[in-house]
């Protein structure tokens, strides 16, 4: 098995924790979120979420910006563009499959 790509170690470390993976996926769904918003949907404290966000930021997976008194986190751009192209191709595949299923059931 190939070793992880150079530069991936911090990412591996950041993603080794299920809560951090959950935090990432929640930020992905919401676009942007603060530590307090995330903590409301997770069984951990805001302080704990804050620590997870710090390690995700250190691994380059999230970026932050200040909005008034809040700090909002978002995914860094690379996952976005990847997600877009993936969604397009998967969407086309399912449209075809469902059309085939429709023909199958229309006979």
């Amino acid at each position: 098995m190939a070793p992880p790509p150079v530069g991936a170690q911090p990412v591996f470390a950041a993603l080794s924790d299920p809560t951090r993976r959950q935090v990432l996926s929640m930020i992905g769904e919401r676009g942007e979120a603060s530590a307090s918003q995330l903590a409301r949907s997770l069984p951990v404290s805001r302080q704990a979420v804050q620590k997870h966000l710090a390690s995700l930021a250190a691994a380059g997976l999230v970026a932050d910006r200040r909005d008034g008194r809040e700090v909002l986190y978002r995914l860094t751009p690379a996952p976005m563009s990847d997600a877009m192209s993936w969604m397009a191709s998967v969407g086309a595949q399912w449209d075809e499959r469902l059309a085939a299923l429709n023909r199958h059931l229309s006979r």
Binding site: P4, A8, V11, P79
Partner: peptide
């Protein structure tokens, strides 16, 4: 019929990390 296909693990391969090797270990 509604179909939703999602990649909860997408964040990994978006970063060029092989999901299979990370999750399944050396004897994948």
């Amino acid at each position: 019929v509604r179909v939703v296909e999602s990649r909860p693990l997408a964040i990994l391969d978006a970063r060029g990390i092989e999901i299979g090797s990370w999750l399944a270990g050396p004897a994948a």
